[in-house]
Design a protein around this nucleic acid. Structure first.
Length: 271
DNA sequence: AAAAGCCCCTGGATGC
DNA sequence: TGCATCCAGGGGCTTT
């Protein structure tokens, strides 16, 4: 589920409310993708300074050290003063002076990992190879074009890999490629400069629009305030195999690329 | 070194 | 109703 818009919506929904809070207790349920890398007790007394996002990771900064949090495929956070008793899929609870932060993650592909510093080995391993933030001014169209030139793989896979640009998952990769009129199977290196520029703009446009809609809620996503997203209602291709293209009425096609589904319009995405 | 596959895990939808 | 199969928003790791 959670791609950049969902992670950012989550961040915005609790960052200011948790800022300044002191940790009272931390408890873990079933194992997530990786161990916490510290004793839960070691976090007691720390003060939350702020919450940042890098790619699909949330970084919870303490006065000393930070937590790297990933929502995986099915994770969602809640932050509230009052929450029900821990359920079977609640795997991380952090009680603070300003509320309880809870990670719910049925599939447990998510993670909460502690690091002493942002350049500690764990953090470096997880964040070190991440590409450009698509909504930051650093995301430059010509640099993007140059990066694509070096990748012979299909453009869809390049977008998902996160080494050129981060945060674009399966939904938004499909949608951005549609908007740019590019077929998902096209080798990234074969995309012309004007079309790379168009794709660059499409990525930003699609992500910003999704942010405005509160992200996409396909099954279990909600913000840390429990709000659903609505972008899925205006998807042009994602999840629409066999349905009519909203632009040209052609039947939307589905194909598999690296064990993921790609949706595209054969008429609107010719190259 | 780049690219392709393989898993991790649970639950919902579909089909027999 | 029951059971098997397939599929899902991610991404690090292993193998080619």
């Amino acid at each position: 589920m959670p791609e950049l818009p969902e992670v950012e919506v989550t961040r915005l929904s609790f960052a200011s409310r948790i800022a300044g809070a002191q940790v009272l207790s931390v408890s873990m349920g079933k194992a997530l993708r990786w161990p916490l890398m510290c004793e839960p007790k070691a976090l007691v007394g720390r003060v939350v300074v702020g919450v940042r996002r890098r790619g699909k990771y949330l970084l919870i900064d303490f006065d000393r050290g930070l937590l790297l949090l990933h929502l995986g495929m099915s994770g969602s956070l809640m932050f509230a003063t009052q929450l029900p008793q821990r359920g079977v899929h609640d795997h991380f609870d952090m009680q603070t002076t300003q509320g309880l932060l809870r990670l719910n993650d049925p599939r447990r592909f998510g993670a909460v990992v502690y690091a002493d510093h942002e350049d500690a080995p764990v953090a470096h391993k997880l964040l070190g190879k991440l590409g450009c933030e698509p909504l930051s001014p650093n995301f430059d169209a010509l640099k993007f074009y140059a990066d694509l030139k070096r990748k012979k793989t299909a453009i869809k896979q390049v977008l998902l890999a996160g080494e050129v640009v981060v945060g674009v998952g399966n939904i938004y990769a499909c949608e951005a490629l549609f908007q740019a009129g590019i077929r998902p199977t096209l080798s990234a290196a074969r995309i012309s400069r004007p079309r790379a520029v168009k794709l660059h703009a499409a990525i930003r446009e699609v992500l910003n629009r999704a942010l405005e809609k509160g992200g996409s809620t396909l099954r279990d996503f909600s913000s840390a305030q429990g709000e659903s997203g609505y972008f899925q209602l205006e998807a042009m291709v994602y999840g629409r195999a066999g349905q009519a293209c909203r632009v040209c009425q052609s039947s939307i096609k589905l194909l598999r690329q690296g064990q993921r589904s790609s949706f595209y319009c054969p008429q609107c995405q010719k190259g």
